[in-house]
Nucleic acid binder design. Structure first.
Ligand SMILES: [Zn+2]
Ligand SMILES: [Zn+2]
Ligand SMILES: [Zn+2]
Ligand SMILES: [Zn+2]
Lengths: 167, 167
DNA sequence: AATCGCCATGTTATACTATAACAAACCGAA
DNA sequence: TTCGGTTTGTTATAGTATAACATGGCGATT
């Protein structure tokens, strides 16, 4: 546990990062008496391998290649399970799914999404949540769920020529 | 201009609210030399009439009823125009569109969405933006666009029996 | 070990959301 | 009036997600 979130750093140890996420997932599912079946584990692995938001249909070919059925319900069921366990999050503005770097406890999620390199990192949403809570409570609104997805350019991509900060 | 944003108040003057939005839209388009054609105006009217986020395909029948072609491109083109002019916003987490209460100038948008009555109100996102900017700048991330969509229960719906704050 | 029931997966079909591509009509400026 | 760009019509298709029911595997209980 307590893995590092590599953020937008391109040169972190990908393999370690992924293995660590999978191992944490196994531990958590065992603790919770949930079944991390081969399909579910494979989907989680694929998401971490790519290390960027992945569309459901992008994942299907790899499922087929691994010998599983690859009709849409297969992948959506796996994604549903992984989301319920907090192992992946859905990014609504991209129709895509990404691994959660700290699935041990449920939490509000928010993302910075780089339009240059397509990577996304999970934000600490506490400050955003405080701001939202304040606005909401003025209206007597009771928050149940927050979607916070910010598109822009990461530090690396800002220094690449040709990248502009358009969404 | 300077219309009131009725927020979650159920008993505001709907007709006035809608007429005002349409009249503002006409003014803005004239100023900008953009053409608020009958289809575009009708789509905007339908969105304001319902006064809640509307899916593209929910709007199509009314287009057909008004004698227009009602194939999907018709509605998406109108919505694209209205978004470009800032007259409507898209809510990604709902795949839906809603009228903007202050389209005079471009702005970041954010929404509180009531899961009880399906209404949505546009937030003042300045405080949220400050919080996001701070988090982003720590990572050297340059923000281009923010999606902020908060689901919960409005004050009215909290007092209705049977409503819970689940998203 | 056998049984039972639940959960997971397979399979087919379909709903829902959005865009591509090209033709025809319209509209406004020169 | 003519021209050229914009808007709309039309057909087709891409992309995202779920319904519904059958089948199979796994694990708890006996
Ligand atoms: Zn997370
Ligand atoms: Zn980047
Ligand atoms: Zn707005
Ligand atoms: Zn409400």
């Amino acid at each position: 546990m307590n893995r590092e979130d590599p953020g937008f750093e391109a040169n972190h140890n990908h393999d370690h990062c992924m293995e660590s996420a999978l191992s944490t997932a196994k531990d958590l599912c065992r603790e919770r008496k949930q079944r991390l079946t081969p399909i579910r584990e494979l989907v989680l692995k694929l998401i971490w391998e790519n290390h960027q938001p992945m569309g459901a249909y992008e994942l299907l070919p790899a499922l087929a290649a691994a010998g599983f059925n690859s009709a849409p319900p297969t992948i959506y069921r796996a994604l549903e399970f992984l989301q319920e366990q907090g192992l992946v999050h859905r990014i609504a503005s991209l129709n895509a799914f990404i691994g959660c770097p700290h699935p041990e406890s449920p939490h509000r999620s928010g993302f910075l999404i780089c339009s240059g390199c397509q990577r996304a990192v999970e934000l600490d949403t506490a400050p955003v949540h405080r701001a939202l809570s304040e606005s909401a409570s003025e209206l007597g609104f009771k928050i149940a769920h927050e979607t916070v997805e910010v598109v822009g350019l990461c530090a690396d991509c800002q220094s690449q020529p040709g990248e502009t900060a358009d969404a």
